[in-house]
Design a protein around this nucleic acid. Structure first.
Length: 161
DNA sequence: ACAGGTCCCTACC
DNA sequence: GGTAGGGACCTGT
């Protein structure tokens, strides 16, 4: 049993899926240039409560009060995968790390390709801020779309100045 | 076996 | 000195 909703916060929209205990299971991003921030879809009445909680957490991140979207969620994966994703939360706003740095931190200095693979299937972008991981020579990829990664990073760097 | 959001060295220009 | 190509390196399925 799972529930869905879509929120729009210029210039992005957020697709949410959560379970009956109110744990966010999946988050997807897309562009949405509607200027009005709003909940544009939800599939039952109880969703309002969840959306409110998510909205507040999102707002905290959006204003850089928290370095990631801090909502109740459930993360599946192996211990090592979780360790990698949890490590992302230590990266401060306006900072980045390389795939290689993360690999070294979890003790597999040459497993940087595998790090990319984990981030690629991160079900909760921004909850685990994988957009702050870049390649040694370029920005690297982003499962939610390369331009969205660029936008998120640009926005975070902008606030530092 | 194989894939994957990489890295780095090499060989060219 | 910039860049295109290829081999090596890890874990989870």
């Amino acid at each position: 049993m799972s529930f869905k909703a879509i929120l729009s916060v210029f210039p992005l929209k957020f697709y949410l899926i959560w379970d009956q205990e109110g744990n966010l299971l999946k988050l997807n991003l897309a562009w949405d240039f509607n200027l009005v921030s709003q909940v544009i879809f939800y599939d039952n009445e109880k969703a309002q409560k969840f959306c409110k909680a998510f909205w507040e957490a999102l707002w905290s991140y959006w204003n850089f009060k928290t370095p990631f979207i801090n909502v109740k969620h459930r993360l599946i994966g192996t211990e090592l995968e979780k360790k990698v994703l949890l490590g992302l939360r230590e990266i401060k706003i306006g900072k980045v790390k390389r795939y290689k740095d993360l690999a070294e931190e979890v003790g597999i200095s040459k497993g940087y390709r595998w790090i990319g693979k984990i981030l690629a299937k991160n079900p909760l972008p921004l909850v685990y801020p994988c957009h702050r991981v870049i390649g040694s020579k370029n920005l690297g990829g982003y499962s939610q779309g390369f331009l969205i990664k660029q936008f998120l990073l640009y926005r975070e760097l902008e606030i530092i100045r």
